[in-house]
Amino acid sequence: MDAIRLHTYGPAANLRLETLPDPVPGPGEARVAARAAGLHFIETLLRQGQGVGPHPAPELPVVLGSEVAGVVEAVGEGVPAGLVGRRVVTAEVSTGGYASHAVAPAATLTELPDQVGFGAAVAMNTTGATTYGLLELAPIGPEDVVLVLAAAGGVGTLLVQYARRAGATVAGAAGGPAKAARVAELGADLAVDYLEAGWDKSVREVSGEVTVVFDGVGGELGRAAHGLLGRGGRHVVYGSASGEWFRPDAAEAEARDIAVLDGIGHLLGRDGGMAELRARALEAAAEGVLTPAVQEFPLAEAAAAHAALESRDTMGKVVLTV
């Protein structure tokens, strides 16, 4: 099989395309002929040898990635033979996702609706499920004024779409004029470039007091967004793309009656796990309720995909195609 393997921690250029033996599914496992593999920012850190939360630096050599969509090609002992030929997606690959073939526990495979393509499936399986989990934590309706940071990203684009359908007033903030233009195309009432000074003032002038912030960026941008919340507002923190998690002054938040909600903690600790959220997200894609933004790179260009992700030069979910 074709696979992208890392032999030495370091820059994106260290990712190499190699030919490896096809993995063999063991008991309870299935081999998937991959058509799309998802990338996550955390994998750019693992590539550099950094452990992230519960994820230690990987042992080398390694094929990174855990998320693929494709067609079941073979099954191991105890797995129904009828699974062969099914279009599926999983986020629990055990052999590495940056490859033309991958093995995963059969119990983790979700069959795809006919209307959902492989790239969209990878996007909705994670970013879609994350979106629904965050909305579960902070439901929104027509009375809300919602600010989405990183609104041109995978989760951000879905949050903007959902908030618009819910009737909320939506402000989307993204880095650079092209990304801000994309947010405007999604239907945001206001799209701003948060690389420009005074972007937060523009949000306040146009949208008034914000009731909900969805923050996957953190750092100074997270702090600026926090300042836009009115009394009783909700600040949902689910990422630190800036390199720094947003942590408000607890006394100030309490004085303003602002709830700071841990999106990642909610997703990890959710009763029943993520399976229900993934099914809901795939159904939303099949019905056209939400359309994921996907930026594709061929498998052989995994290094370029990593470099683009690190430089914030991507829009939507980054996917390797096989």
Rank of each mutant, 00 (worst) to 15 (best):
A184N: 05
E185A: 04
L186C: 06
G187L: 07
D189Q: 05
L190Y: 02
V192S: 07
D193F: 00
Y194H: 15
L195Y: 09
E196W: 04
A197N: 05
G198K: 13
W199L: 12
D200M: 08
R204E: 15
V206R: 13
S207F: 00
V213W: 10
V217S: 07
V217P: 01
V217D: 06
G218M: 02
G218Q: 01
G219T: 02
E220C: 00
E220W: 04
A225Q: 02
A225P: 11
G232N: 05
Y238M: 03
S240H: 13
E244Q: 10
R247P: 02
P248N: 02
D249F: 03
D249N: 10
A250N: 08
A250R: 11
A253F: 08
A255W: 12
R256F: 13
D257W: 08
D257R: 07
D257M: 06
I258D: 13
G265H: 06
L267P: 03
L267W: 06
L267Q: 04
L268W: 14
G269V: 09
D271R: 11
G272V: 01
A275R: 11
L277I: 01
L277W: 03
R278K: 14
A286T: 02
G288N: 13
L290V: 04
A293E: 15
V294H: 05
F297Y: 15
P298A: 13
P298T: 10
E301N: 12
A303D: 15
A304N: 08
H306C: 05
H306F: 08
A307P: 07
L309G: 07
T314Q: 10
